[in-house]
Design a binder for these strands. Structure first.
Lengths: 122, 122
DNA sequence: CAGCATCCGGGTTGATACTG
DNA sequence: CAGTATCAACCCGGATGCTG
C-alpha cells in the first residue's frame, strides 16, 4: 500500500491501517466470530461459513495465522485432523467484532430500508 | 452473492452478512470514524484519508449514503460546497467501529510482530 | 481429510482527461 | 471545488484436478 503522504491523520494513521487490513477481509469477519465459540476443522468451517470456497478458506486462515489471530493445530494423524482455534490475540479481536456484529443485527433493517429507498429514487 | 446453502449458522447468517458488507470495505472503515468527529468536504477527506483516489472516495461515499450511514449536504453554491456528515445510523455504527479501532491501536504491535515471525519461518 | 497448483473470467481500482 | 467518463491493468476468487 502506498503510504500516506503527510497530512494524513488519526484513525487513518499507519498503525491502525495495518491492523485494519485484517478486518477488511470479508471472510475474516465471519470466521473469527465462529472460532470464538469453539475450535473448528477445515470442513466444519467450510460448511458453517456459507458460500466460501476451499481456496478462500485456506487463504483466509493462513492470513489469520500470519497475523497471530489463529492457531493451526495439526494432530499429525492419518487421516489428517487439523483444528483451528483463536489465539489470545484473536479472542481479544473477536470481542471487538462482537460489538460490530451486534450493530449489524440491530440495525440491519434500517440499512436495508435505507438502501431500498435510495435505489428507488435512482 | 450465492446465498448460504442450509447448514450455515449464526454470525454467518444473512442479516449480519448484509450489514457486514458495509464494514467489509476497507475505506468505509477509515472514513466513518473520520466523519464521526466532524462533517468534512470532499477535498478534506481526500487529504485526510491517505492513499485513497478521488474515484474510490466518491464511490465509497455513495455507498455509505446508500446504506443510510452518511448524508450528503450540497450547499448549492458556486464554487460548489458539499459536506458529508454521519446520519444517526452512521454515528451508531461509528461507536461500534471505535471499539475495533481501539483494538487495532492497542494490538498493532502484537500483530506486526506475529507477522514478522511468521514470515521469517517461511 | 486437508490442501496445493493451475488456469482464467470478471470485477475492482488507478490514471488521466474532461465538465459544471 | 466536486465530480463524471473512459480505458487499461490488476488481482480476487471460483472451478478443477491432483497429492499426502
Amino acid at each position: 500500500m502506498t503510504d500516506a503522504p503527510s497530512g494524513t491523520v488519526l484513525s487513518a494513521t499507519c498503525p491502525s491501517r495495518a491492523a485494519l487490513e485484517v478486518v477488511g477481509s470479508k471472510w475474516a469477519l465471519l470466521i473469527v466470530p465462529l472460532l470464538a465459540r469453539q475450535p473448528l476443522r477445515n470442513n466444519e468451517l467450510l460448511r458453517q461459513v456459507g458460500g466460501i470456497s476451499q481456496k478462500m478458506l485456506t487463504q483466509t486462515l493462513r492470513e489469520l495465522e500470519r497475523h497471530g489471530l489463529v492457531q493451526r493445530i495439526d494432530h499429525q494423524t492419518v487421516p489428517p485432523h487439523v483444528e483451528y482455534q483463536l489465539t489470545a490475540l484473536g479472542q481479544s479481536l473477536s470481542e471487538a467484532l462482537v460489538v460490530v456484529d451486534r450493530w449489524a443485527e440491530r440495525h440491519f433493517a434500517a440499512v436495508a430500508s435505507a438502501r431500498m429507498a435510495f435505489d428507488r429514487r435512482r
